[in-house]
Simulated scan of single mutants.
Amino acid sequence: MRGTLLAGLGVLAFSGTFPATAFAMRGFDPYLVAIGRASVAALAAALCLMAAGAPLLPPRSQLKSYAVIALSVVFGFPLFSGLALNAGASVSHAAVVVGLLPAATAVCAVLRAGERPRTAFWVASTGGAVSVTIFTVSRGGGSLAVADLLMVAALVCAAVGYTEGGRLARHTPGWRVISYALVVAAPVAVPLTVLLSMTIAQRPTAEAVAGFAYVSLVSMFLGFIPWYAGLAMGGIARAGQTQLLQPPLSLLWAWLLLDERLEVATVAGALAVLVCVAATQRARS
């Protein structure tokens, strides 16, 4: 139960990512938002490591795993999801599509972390995935739009990074896992951030800066601390199903902060995956 609660706290932090990204892109280029947030988060991570007296780099034997996390959740998910929003996907639409993430994470947990959920777990997960797929295809007139394909790429990146981080968090505190991943990504993120900021015109506003600060410090760093700890304690596949709570939470933020209209199909899709999360939490690994 404690692992599920910690993972749920991470999901609460992540649920504000899409609205915050939308705000950030009102004043900053999508590529700068995706790469720049990693640079800011890397600075915060390095400061935390130094304050704790921990090494600034992970053990050499684990560098490959941290490189996978950096490529997937530090670069991949922010970039693809930001481009999806820039390509025309609304925050509400992206929020429901992200409901596929728990199923993708569960598959990665089986392939990489050696977990073996029960049949009931897979039935409930499949139900959630089918609900999201039906919603996405119906909203796209029977086909997937470019923005949907970008979101699928983002989800694959997130599933890989969540699984690898959850596996490492079994032996390393969650805050150090994400900190090391960010430090490993810094040699690429920082120069690219400087280059993008110098070559692309920006229009920073108060709401854009606030959105950028959220995705940098909360989405990219602080949210991962309870998230990875929860995955390690509760099991990657099972605790990862708390992400099914992210679509309805993101819909709420989109309605409150962005004044997006909540259509019946959108709410129905979110409720469908919400029902599935209760079922998956009853199906113990």
Rank of each mutant, 00 (worst) to 15 (best):
R170K: 15
I69R: 04
S197T: 02
V73M: 12
I236Y: 01
V218M: 12
L101N: 10
V277S: 12
S138N: 15
A45W: 08
R167W: 00
L32T: 11
I134W: 14
S65Y: 13
L245Q: 03
M25V: 15
I178R: 04
T105I: 15
L111P: 12
L101H: 15
R2D: 00
S143P: 00
S285C: 13
P117L: 09
V123P: 00
G235Y: 11
W122I: 01
V132S: 05
L257G: 09
D148G: 04
M220F: 05
A153F: 15
G128Q: 03
G140K: 11
A270K: 06
A95H: 07
S81Q: 13
A67L: 14
A34D: 07
E164S: 02
D148Q: 00
A213N: 05
Q62K: 11
Q243R: 06
M25S: 04
G76Y: 09
L262S: 07
L196Y: 09
I225M: 14
G27S: 07
G234R: 07
V40K: 10
I178L: 01
A279E: 06
L217C: 12
L249K: 01
V160C: 06
P117W: 06
S219W: 04
P247T: 10
A70V: 11
G223S: 14
P30R: 06
A94C: 03
G53W: 02
G16C: 08
T205D: 05
L196F: 13
H93C: 01
